[in-house]
Nucleic acid binder design. Structure first.
Length: 273
DNA sequence: ATTATATCCTGATCGC
DNA sequence: TGCGATCAGGATATAA
């Protein structure tokens, strides 16, 4: 489930292989994605970057390909091979079944693979894509004061609020639970009711957990892989997510699961107040 | 204005 | 062995 760390992992790898590459053609296998604009697009890649959970591939000529992986999307890079008698790249059968889009570059092929087909790709002018953004929580610029301003008078539970991409981009369901465990804040607390000290701790934990996850190249539960097909490593550092009934790492009391806004939340009722 | 809910999809898993 | 029900969660459209 790609959240900010998984998307950042993809962006870093794609940047290394795509900058300077020339897009020759694009083939959409999923009719849901097919657009004339997209399939006619060509050009040289200037940059690959991330805005929240969006992946932006900037092209010469002022347009950008904008990908969103949603739940199960993967961007896989297949380096061009020397021509063989067989010719063309060989696809793993399970991969082929969920191949939605293939982008042919001069130096290889990028494949957009997505089991549940929630993911999106569109072509948009780069400058429009660069519209003003919500706060990106990777940098130390996320402070308690900033959180306080963003939260305002919101009465949503803090766990639900953390998932709001219109205020703070990048946090998803897995990291929201992990962040709140790290700073010992109860996920059911009303956002606007958190004290300045709690907001400071929340800001610090958010930056800390997301950066740690980026270092680990993300979390792989079932679907996520980087463009080289490798899994993330952060799943071994998860302390509450999917740890229902297991002893808390700090106090040994059983981790609880609850549902907020139709999403699972995991927390320790004793540690998190 | 904010907040809650239904929807988009498919595969894995579970109970019968 | 299979069959239907349920769950997984990012973001948006719609409802309240």
């Amino acid at each position: 489930m790609p959240e900010l760390p998984e998307v950042e992992t993809v962006v870093r790898r794609l940047r290394a292989v795509l900058v300077g590459a020339k897009l020759r053609s694009t083939e959409c296998l999923d009719p849901k994605l097919k657009s004339r604009k997209l399939t006619r697009h060509q050009g040289e890649v200037l940059q690959v970057r991330r805005e929240g959970k969006n992946i932006l591939v900037d092209f010469s000529g002022g347009n950008s390909l904008k990908f969103h992986l949603r739940m199960t999307g993967n961007l896989i890079w297949e380096k061009a091979r020397t021509k063989t008698a067989i010719g063309g790249a060989i696809l793993h059968p399970s991969t082929e079944a969920h191949l939605r889009c293939r982008l042919n570059f001069d130096r290889g092929e990028m494949r957009f693979i997505d089991v549940r087909r929630f993911g999106t790709v569109e072509l948009a002018p780069s400058r429009l894509v660069r519209a003003e953004l919500p706060v990106d929580p990777v940098e130390d610029t996320l402070t308690g004061e900033v959180l306080q301003r963003l939260i305002g008078k919101s009465r949503q539970a803090i766990k639900v609020w953390l998932l709001r991409q219109d205020r703070l981009v990048g946090v998803g369901n897995i990291y929201a639970s992990e962040i709140l465990f790290d700073c010992r804040v109860d996920p059911r607390r009303e956002a606007a009711a958190l004290s300045p000290a709690e907001l400071k701790a929340l800001a610090r934990s958010t930056v800390k957990i997301l950066n740690k996850a980026i270092e680990c190249c993300g979390t792989t539960f079932s679907d996520f892989h980087n463009p080289d097909g490798e899994s993330g490593k952060f799943q071994s550092f998860l302390k509450v997510y999917q740890h229902d009934q297991q002893p808390c790492r700090r106090c040994k009391s059983p981790i609880k699961r609850l549902v907020q806004a139709q999403r699972s939340t995991f927390y320790c009722a004793k540690c998190q107040q």
